[in-house]
Simulated scan of single mutants.
Amino acid sequence: MDKMSALTMFVATAEHGNFSRAAEVLGNTPSALTKAVAQLEEELGSRLFDRTTRRMALTEAGRIYLEGARQALLQLQLASEGVEQLKHELRGELRIIAPPSFAPAFLNQVCCRFLNEHPQVNLEVDLSDNYDDPVDGSYDLALRDGPIDLPGVIAQPLVENRVQLCASPAYLARKGSDVSLDNYHQHDWLIFRHPLLNRHFWWVKQGERRLRMTQPTPRIASDNYDFLLACLLDGQGLQFLPQWSAAPYLARGELVELMPEYWREPSAFGPWIYVLYQAHRRNTRKVKVFIDFLKAHWQAA
Rank of each mutant, 00 (worst) to 15 (best):
S5G: 13
L7F: 06
L7M: 06
T8Q: 14
F10A: 02
T13H: 04
R21A: 14
V25T: 09
V25E: 09
L26E: 01
A32E: 09
A38G: 15
E41Q: 12
E43T: 08
L48V: 08
D50Q: 13
D50K: 15
D50A: 12
A57E: 09
L58M: 12
L58K: 09
A61G: 09
A61N: 09
G62R: 02
G62I: 05
I64W: 12
Q71S: 10
A72Y: 07
Q77W: 10
A79S: 13
G82M: 07
G82V: 08
R91S: 12
L94N: 04
P100S: 10
L107P: 05
R113I: 09
V121P: 01
V121S: 06
L123I: 11
D126C: 10
L127G: 02
V135H: 05
D136C: 12
G137N: 11
S138W: 10
A142T: 04
A142Q: 05
A142E: 02
D145A: 06
V159H: 00
N161H: 05
A170P: 07
Y171P: 02
A173M: 10
K175N: 13
Q186G: 07
L190C: 06
I191N: 00
F192N: 01
P195I: 05
R199I: 14
F201P: 04
W203E: 08
W203F: 15
S222V: 06
N224I: 13
D226W: 09
G235L: 13
Q239E: 13
L241N: 01
P242C: 08
Q243N: 14
A246R: 00
A251D: 07
E254C: 08
V256W: 06
M259W: 07
E261P: 05
E261N: 06
R264A: 11
F269A: 04
W272M: 11
Y274K: 04
Y274R: 01
V275H: 01
V275C: 13
L276S: 08
Y277P: 03
A279Q: 15
H280G: 06
R285W: 12
K286Y: 07
F290A: 02
H297L: 07
Q299S: 13
A301K: 10
